[in-house]
């Protein structure tokens, strides 16, 4: 083990995923690939949030025989970011589904998935 705390790796991976996703969103012409880029940004943000909620040596915030109630405040990780990520995953899923159905409609209309063919909304 190196000296770096474990959540640093999660944080860096999350930030790297956000960067890769942004690259995909900006560079790709194919709408499906752009949606994949969005999902990568989404996942990266979730990882960053989870990493920020980590407390050194903490365990899952569930009270049972391993974590008695009186120790709970000192032994568990922050439950709030976990709850927020739970919300964010569901919202991300909904947004992705709507984007994919837009992609289906664009393909139906233009017979192409290239963003360059959607020139009506270009200024």
């Amino acid at each position: 083990m190196t000296g770096l705390p474990v959540s640093t790796y999660v944080l860096s991976t999350g930030l790297a995923l956000i960067l890769i996703g942004l690259w995909g969103l900006l560079m790709q012409k194919n709408i499906i690939r752009m949606i994949i880029g969005f999902s990568l940004v989404d996942t990266g943000i979730h990882m960053v949030m989870i990493a920020i909620g980590y407390v050194t040596g903490g365990t899952a915030p569930i009270i049972d025989s391993a974590v008695p109630i009186k120790d709970a405040a000192t032994r568990v990780v922050d439950p709030v970011p976990s709850a927020l990520v739970l919300t964010a995953i569901v919202i991300g899923l909904g947004v992705t589904a709507v984007m994919l159905s837009y992609a289906v409609n664009i393909y139906r209309e233009k017979k192409s998935l290239s963003i360059d063919d959607c020139s009506e909304s270009k200024w």
């Binding site: 944080l11 050194t56 439950p79 709030v80």
Partner: peptide
């Protein structure tokens, strides 16, 4: 992002809100 990652230090205790929840 690199600034965020380099200056990140892991929490050693819960925030007050989380302590209340826990």
């Amino acid at each position: 992002f690199s600034d965020v990652a380099l200056n990140y230090s892991e929490h050693t205790e819960l925030s007050r809100l989380a302590q209340h929840y826990a």
